[in-house]
Amino acid sequence: MSDLQHTRVGIVGLGLMGGSLALALRGHVPYLLGVDRQPATRQAALRDGIVDEAVEALTPDAPPVDLLVLATPVRAILDTLTRLPALRPDGCAVLDLGSTKRAVVAAMSALPERFPAIGGHPMCGKETAGLAAAAADLYRGQTFVLCPLPDAPPAAEQLARQLIAAIGARPVVLDAARHDATVAAVSHLPYLLAGALMRGAADERLWAISASGFRDTARLAGSDPRMMLDILLTNREAVLDALREAETELAAVRDALADGDEAALAEWLSAAQVAYAAYRRFKSGEHLLPGAQT
């Protein structure tokens, strides 16, 4: 497999993640193909020089690429992986940017050998979607999780690591099950909690006196519902586990408050504060998850 500087790259999905990747890869690869169903998106990507060519769909007649990056919602990624042998008969390396990994890695494992593949999940984003929100520095300094296939040859991971270095991200290797359990707790659950907060406070009379605490806590509720629907349904078991943990914590503080148990309530609040302080120290040192590899 060639080095990234000699690799023709195709990106399926030119939204926030795919568009940002294309912007970040300019100057690092000799050719970028964009694949997107929306005519306006393709026109903007060509007009702004984000890609060299743009097509509506991945077909056997589409321009050849050496690396295909799947940057669509997870269920669309799974559909593309199922059809990939017919869509790209000659094969190519495959990387995805999906937010859940177990189903994706399983689908990649079923591909023929001419498709060296690896699961990927850049841990970054915005609450706004679409090519207009894309930014060349979106990935810079951010964690980029890689989930290698069991017993897979190293070619796909080597190329993925070159891509990650080119866009300024930091690679972390996790197995797919560990990844999905982790992001359920630290990404998918926060989205649902923000959604619950926003649904319960959907009243302009409340917004008039809201401040930064409400704004910052509710921010994730602005995420694309279509994208989040795919994420939740393809990580259902892990998200349900995370919800049960959250329900246990909320029940504890509810009961302490209902009973007027000041000591229990103070302990709950203090434990949350201590955990948050530890989290801030952890992040400032950029530690890895236990068991993760760089």
Score class of each variant (00 low, 15 high):
Ala156Val: 03
Arg8Leu: 05
Ala166Lys: 06
Arg75Trp: 14
Ala152Val: 05
Gly222Thr: 03
Gly34Tyr: 05
His287Leu: 12
His6Phe: 11
Gly13Ser: 03
Ala24Arg: 06
Cys92His: 05
Ala221Val: 02
Ala160His: 01
Pro30Arg: 14
Ala246Leu: 10
Ile231Val: 07
Ala133Tyr: 00
Arg37Gly: 04
Lys283Thr: 10
Asp180Glu: 01
Ala62Arg: 15
Thr7Asn: 08
Ala246Lys: 02
Gly15Phe: 00
Pro60Tyr: 01
Ile164Ala: 01
Gly27Glu: 00
Thr59Asn: 08
Val186Leu: 07
His121Tyr: 06
Ala211Asp: 09
Asp259Thr: 13
Asp3Met: 13
Arg83Ala: 15
Arg37Leu: 08
Glu286Trp: 11
Ala184Trp: 00
Leu159Pro: 00
His287Asp: 15
Leu87Gly: 07
Ser210Thr: 09
Arg281Gly: 13
Arg219Glu: 08
Gly200Glu: 07
Asp180Trp: 02
Pro73Tyr: 12
Met108Gly: 04
Gly10Pro: 10
Gln142Lys: 14
Ile77Met: 15
Ala242Lys: 09
Asn235Arg: 10
Ala278Ile: 07
Val239Phe: 01
Leu131His: 03
Gln158Cys: 05
Pro116Arg: 10
Val9Glu: 04
Glu245Asn: 13
Gln43Glu: 14
Gly222Met: 03
Leu68Lys: 09
Ala275Glu: 11
Ala166Pro: 02
Val9Tyr: 02
Glu53Gln: 15
Asp203Ser: 10
Arg280Gln: 15
Leu149Gly: 10
Arg236Ala: 14
Arg42Leu: 02
Leu131Trp: 04
Ala133Glu: 01
Leu97Glu: 08
Gly49Arg: 09
Ala106Met: 06
Glu262Asp: 15
Arg37Gln: 07
Ala258Phe: 15
Asp66Cys: 10
Asp230Leu: 05
Asn235Glu: 03
Arg236Cys: 08
Ser2Trp: 08
Ala238Tyr: 05
Ile231Met: 03
Leu33Val: 01
Arg226Glu: 12
Gly168Tyr: 11
Val104Leu: 05
Ser109Lys: 01
Ala133His: 00
Leu269Gly: 03
Asp90His: 14
Glu286Asn: 15
Ala93Leu: 07
Pro154Ser: 04
Asn235Ser: 04
Arg47Ile: 11
Thr80Tyr: 15
Leu32His: 07
Arg37Val: 00
Ala221Thr: 06
Asp230Phe: 12
Leu146Lys: 03
Asp52Lys: 05
